[in-house]
Structures are given as structure tokens and as C-alpha cells.
């Protein structure tokens, strides 16, 4: 049994390899980009819009709204990053409904990659908002004694992000796989449904945590 789609390698050339995770990710990227392009190709500013446009508008405005609710003053600046996090994870998880599909988010490499981007994004937005000095000062808050703990916290939460998502998604897939062996009928379907819910919740949790981290990194100066 494969724990991670990384293990299915289609092509390898030295350090480079083309595994299932990367291929699935490309497929998802293609689908998402093409879908967005097709829908937004004929956007209208009329009062009446197409259903797909409404659907995308609802998703985008909802993400923006959530970012705003967390406490970021200018949600538009973070929309691309946080929105993409949420949409990628959500789509990746929702596609588990497809037979034979293995979500890239079930790969620790992918979740780690996402967690690393969050780690750097927090620093990037923090420095961008308050400057390098002010941002570095946040590691000395409330006192310099807290510096090691702050650094540890920074890495540990990044690690936690990666592990949490990987664990949840991987476990979901594993449970379905195990259940298929034990009870091939009905139960896997229920678990799949539960998996959809878990997938969405995980996507939400991942992006909200990323937002909170960014908000924490950019808020100090404002206070």
C-alpha cells in the first residue's frame, strides 16, 4: 500500500523525477486555470450574470471576507496567496470523490511545500508591512528571552501545518482503503462523504491558520 503518491514515479532523470504528486498537481493546475479562464473570459459587468460567474464571485468574495474577518486590513493584498492555498487544497481534496484519484495534499512533500510557502509568506508580508527591523523585533516580544521560543514556534507551527494536512488527508485515504478491504459496500461511500467534509475543513483550517500567521506578523506595527 502506497502512503504517498510521491512513491509512484513515472520518470526519473538523476535528481529530477516525475511522480504522481507532481502530475496530479499539474492536472489540477490545468483544470483550475482553464476553468477560471473559461469562466472569466466573458465576464459581464451587467446586473445579471451567468451562474458560473456568480459561483466564482461568491467563492472569491467569501475568501476575501474571511481574510478581512481574521483582521487583515487589506484583504486584496493577500487574496492571491491565501485564496490559492484554500482553492488548491480544497480542489485537491474534493477530487478524492473521483475513483483512482490520489490527492497531492496526501503527500507530505506537497503539504511541506505549502507550509514552507506559508513560512516565507509570513516573513515576506511581515517585512513588507513593517520593515525588516520591526519584523525582526517581533521575535524579541515580549522580551528577548522569548527569542528562541519564538523561533521554535515559527518552525514548529510550519511543521504542524504540514503534518496536520498530510495526516488528515492521508488518513482519510488510508481509512477508505482499509474499509474497502473490510466492508466493500456502503461504508466506503460514507467515509468518502466524510472525507469530502474533512477535506474542505482542512483546506479552511490551513488557509485560516496561514491568514492568522500573516495577520500576527503584520499586526504588531499597527497596534
Amino acid at each position: 500500500m502506497r502512503i504517498s503518491p510521491d512513491q509512484l514515479v513515472f520518470w526519473r532523470y538523476g535528481f529530477f523525477e516525475l511522480n504522481l504528486t507532481i502530475v496530479t498537481t499539474w492536472a489540477l493546475m490545468l483544470v483550475m486555470s482553464a476553468g477560471a479562464f473559461l469562466i472569466t473570459r466573458h465576464l459581464k459587468a451587467e446586473r445579471t450574470v451567468t451562474r458560473w460567474q456568480s459561483f466564482l464571485e461568491i467563492i472569491v468574495t467569501m475568501i476575501q471576507q474571511q481574510i478581512g474577518e481574521v483582521g487583515l486590513k487589506h484583504p486584496g493584498r493577500y487574496l492571491s496567496f491565501i485564496g490559492t492555498l484554500f482553492l488548491f487544497i480544497a480542489v485537491s481534496n474534493l477530487c478524492t470523490i473521483l475513483p483512482g484519484y490520489e490527492p497531492p495534499s496526501g503527500s507530505l512533500s506537497t503539504t511541506s511545500a505549502l507550509a514552507i510557502t506559508v513560512f516565507f509568506a509570513v516573513s515576506f508580508f511581515g517585512i513588507k508591512e513593517q520593515g525588516l527591523g520591526n519584523y525582526l523585533k517581533t521575535y524579541l516580544e515580549p522580551t528577548f528571552i522569548m527569542l528562541p521560543f519564538n523561533i521554535i514556534s515559527e518552525f514548529s507551527r510550519t511543521f504542524a501545518l504540514a503534518i496536520r494536512l498530510f495526516g488528515n488527508i492521508m488518513s482519510g485515504t488510508m481509512i477508505v482503503g482499509i474499509l474497502l478491504m473490510i466492508a466493500p459496500l456502503i461504508f466506503p461511500v460514507l467515509m468518502d462523504l466524510l472525507g469530502l467534509l474533512t477535506g474542505i475543513v482542512q483546506a479552511y483550517i490551513f488557509s485560516i491558520l496561514a491568514t492568522v500567521y500573516i495577520a500576527a506578523a503584520t499586526r504588531i506595527q499597527e497596534d
Binding site: 502512503i3 504517498s4 510521491d6 512513491q7 535528481f15 529530477f16 523525477e17 511522480n19 504528486t21 507532481i22 503527500s107 507530505l108 512533500s109 506537497t110 511541506s112 511545500a113 514552507i116
Partner: peptide
């Protein structure tokens, strides 16, 4: 639990 750094 392997992490494939290339994949990352």
C-alpha cells in the same frame, strides 16, 4: 515517512 525534496 519520506519527504521527496525535489517534489517539495
Amino acid at each position: 515517512m519520506p519527504i521527496d525534496w525535489f517534489t517539495v
